[in-house]
Design a binder for these strands. Structure first.
Lengths: 254, 254
DNA sequence: TCCTAGTGTTGCGTGATGCGCAACGACGAG
DNA sequence: CTCGTCGTTGCGCATCACGCAACACTAGGA
């Protein structure tokens, strides 16, 4: 059976095991039989794959025979993974400086299929939110880094995202794709994007693309904060700083 | 070939694939041949396992034939995993409150083999450090949450850790196991642990165990900050708040 | 309290998959 | 320019992963 990804035949049991992890990431927790149905394999196969993942700490089971969920071993791996990502490393210092300068939360995001995923985070002194954004995915049409990634993505990616209904996150979310297309054209023209309460009510953001010397888009740096501090009048000035920080990160990456 | 973990025979290729991820977490990056040697398999086997992991985003390769490293897909999974952990969820609210109250960074850690691993983090207004501790592991003898986890761990765990040389992280690190044993007895007696520059110079911490109603140790909550703010004179007062927060988290877990 | 249905686990036999070998192309160092 | 090493891939084969069947356990309903 061919999982047509990357043109080569994957190792079937590894592919299934990762499928289990992705299912549990979406679903929260699930039983053996349910996981077997989801993967299209026998429940005894699912049970053995889960036992292997559990032995390595990537999943854990509640009780002796209960549901499975993602485990702490995954966090250990990802902690190492996040620290090692090129874009995360490149962003670390410039994000810290930007956070200190502007006093708001700064994130580095990469394009992850049809979403923006945060891979690094720095927080300024004014930020009181305790939420960890690393690993979190935001919709491409409703977040500032998402708009940047969408604006500068290959045409195929933009067409795929714009082909689907644009989910409304708040009353301010752009859900008309022609409106979004025009906004993305503006983003490309001026080199930065902004949101005003489109992802969360009262949350504004400004983002700029991180591009390597070879012209490859590798991520986006964004600053976000409450609208009463990061209001539209400040967007141009903040954008100037974000674009500069993104430029520094891009230079580091070659 | 039997990987004697949990008594059952693991699925060999899944076990190997996870072994690759763990090796890359330790090593940073590595080539196909090196990974094959590390796992004790042929390089073509390693190449196929890596291709499957890469197709799913868990690893990425630099250039067409370059070294492999952990990928963004792992961070996505772990972002979901961290959010879903019982201990992380239980700690979220109490950590946020504690961070707001004390103004310092609060972490929740679990015992992860021979280290303390942070699974959740909240930062107070005074904290300016931008480092993300989630996924990071600290030595059990040199961090406050590590001392708590060690003090209240089963005897077998404590014996295993104390059997090894205790690595010196700073000049203040306790490396004499009899001194550490006495300190762990004090931790058990008073119900909290503290460190003074033992993990990092100038960094102090206070931690308390999170125990379920059934008496099971599931983690430790810690507060950390620079020595000039979180000095020894404040330890008892801070400990009182941390013990209370840990008690709340334990109550949530049943 | 008892019965039934469904779940998760495990022994076993089978065939499909994962594996190693060999060969090849690419790349870097001398 | 040559050589050694790396990563990739086709191929054949043996081992491993798989499904089936059976069992123990648990929860819910009568």
């Amino acid at each position: 059976m061919r999982n047509d990804e990357g043109g080569v035949q994957p190792v079937q049991s590894v592919d299934r095991a990762v499928g289990i992890l992705e299912f549990l990431a979406r679903r929260g927790d699930a039983g053996v039989t349910e996981i077997g149905v989801e993967l299209g394999v026998h429940k005894s196969t699912a049970s053995r794959l889960l036992a292997t993942l559990e032995a390595r700490g990537l999943v854990e089971q509640s009780g002796a025979r209960g549901a499975y969920r993602l485990g702490a071993g995954l966090i250990r791996l990802a902690g190492a993974g996040a620290a090692q990502l090129d874009v995360a490393q490149a962003a670390r210092e410039v994000s810290a400086e930007l956070a200190a300068e502007l006093g708001e939360t700064v994130n580095m995001a990469v394009l992850d299929e049809d979403a923006a995923m945060n891979v690094s985070q720095a927080r300024g002194s004014a930020a009181v939110a305790v939420q960890n954004w690393v690993g979190r995915r935001t919709p491409l049409h409703a977040s500032s880094s998402g708009k940047v990634l969408l604006a500068f993505a290959p045409d195929a990616v933009r067409r795929r995202v714009l082909a689907r209904p644009l989910a409304r996150c708040t009353p301010a979310t752009i859900t008309d794709r022609r409106v979004l297309d025009r906004e993305l054209a503006e983003v490309r023209a001026r080199g930065w994007a902004a949101t005003q309460g489109e992802l969360e009510v009262g949350l504004n953001g400004v983002a700029a693309p991180v591009v390597t010397a070879g012209g490859e888009l590798v991520g986006a740096i964004s600053v976000s904060g409450p609208a009463y501090r990061l209001d539209a009048a400040r967007f141009a000035a903040v954008a100037e700083r974000v674009v500069a920080a993104a430029g520094s990160a891009g230079a580091v990456l070659g």
